[in-house]
């Protein structure tokens, strides 16, 4: 046994040593928290008293009696459709368009579209959507004559979801967008020449018969990035439309977890919420992978 371990250490020991710094930090700050949240989800825990095992009651409460949670799941799914899926399509076509320009404009547009995801500039949206006549949108719409009284974009339950989607969409061209940009740039030009000989006539055919199949790995990376950012959205929305939002109209699952974790200190309940959110993301991710790699295996 000892002999075996020594042999194994001699062979792989150096590799593990190089991996060690990453593994330690990754284990302590990602793996342990993830593993901890599983049992905590089955307890009643307020961070002061000892956690008390309650079985499945958190999950039962979530699905059977927490109406706001069910609403937040619906909101998160619709939200993810717009800021994840629609945004992905947008990223894809923007990257494709940008790729057809000259080097200068490629750089120029990449920076322009990427700026919003770089910093906390979203504070300005509160001023654009401000509910008085001084808000940029209200004053513009009143000027043109579409409306004659200011609309409460940030507090009127009919509008805040749309407002939140617009803001999140605006800052969703992040690392997924960059990956797609790079994917387009990376495609071998000779593929297109071969394609032209094989009878491909226009850009659309080029896109579907040559580009997309070549870019599948990049598409997958971008999809993961979009899933993560759209499903875990919450803090920016909280900042713009307030917390809690009117009638919980912009209350995402993440916001719900924040509510229970940091406002009410019900850690068990909050962990259960995060667990469900992760399962949701994982399912969507598997589903996307299935679609993207459908024809390649």
């Amino acid at each position: 046994m000892a002999e075996k371990i020594r042999k194994w250490l001699k062979k792989d020991g150096e590799c593990y040593l190089m991996l060690l710094p990453f593994l330690i930090l990754f284990t302590v700050f990602t793996v342990v928290p993830v593993l901890m949240s599983v049992p905590v989800g089955f307890t009643d825990f307020n961070m002061i008293q000892k956690p008390e095992f309650v079985g499945l009651s958190n999950y039962k409460a979530l699905f059977l009696s927490d109406k706001i949670f069910m609403k937040s799941i619906r909101i998160t799914l619709v939200f993810a459709f717009f800021t994840g899926f629609v945004s992905f399509i947008l990223c894809f076509f923007l990257a494709w368009f940008i790729n057809q320009l000259s080097a200068f404009f490629r750089t120029f547009f990449t920076i322009i579209f990427y700026i919003p995801s770089m910093a906390n500039v979203y504070a300005v949206w509160k001023i654009i959507f401000s509910g008085d006549i001084n808000g940029y949108l209200n004053s513009f719409l009143m000027d043109v004559g579409v409306i004659n009284a200011p609309i409460q974009w940030l507090t009127d339950g009919n509008y805040i979801f749309t407002t939140a989607v617009i803001v999140q969409l605006w800052l969703s061209l992040g690392s997924g967008f960059l990956a797609l940009r790079a994917g387009f740039q990376n495609i071998d030009r000779t593929m297109y020449e071969v394609g032209a000989i094989e009878g491909i006539e226009n850009r659309w055919q080029e896109l579907f018969y040559i580009t997309v199949p070549c870019m599948k790995p990049h598409i997958m990376f971008a999809v993961i990035m979009q899933i993560v950012s759209s499903f875990t959205a919450g803090s920016v929305i909280q900042n713009v439309v307030g917390f809690p939002s009117t009638d919980y109209q912009a209350h995402t699952v993440m916001t719900h977890a924040y509510d229970y974790g940091w406002v009410r200190f019900e850690m068990g309940y909050a962990s259960a919420i995060c667990m469900i959110l992760f399962m949701l993301m994982y399912t969507v991710n598997q589903f996307a992978e299935r679609i993207i790699f459908k024809n390649t295996d």
Partner: peptide, 24 residues
């Protein structure tokens, strides 16, 4: 195994494990 874990871990954004990170 590690490669698989890394790809799955990309789905775990920090604000999902924020609570547990706090406890750690």
């Amino acid at each position: 195994f590690l490669n698989k874990i890394i790809v799955i871990a990309m789905l775990y954004q920090s604000n999902m494990i924020y609570l547990m990170q706090y406890m750690v």
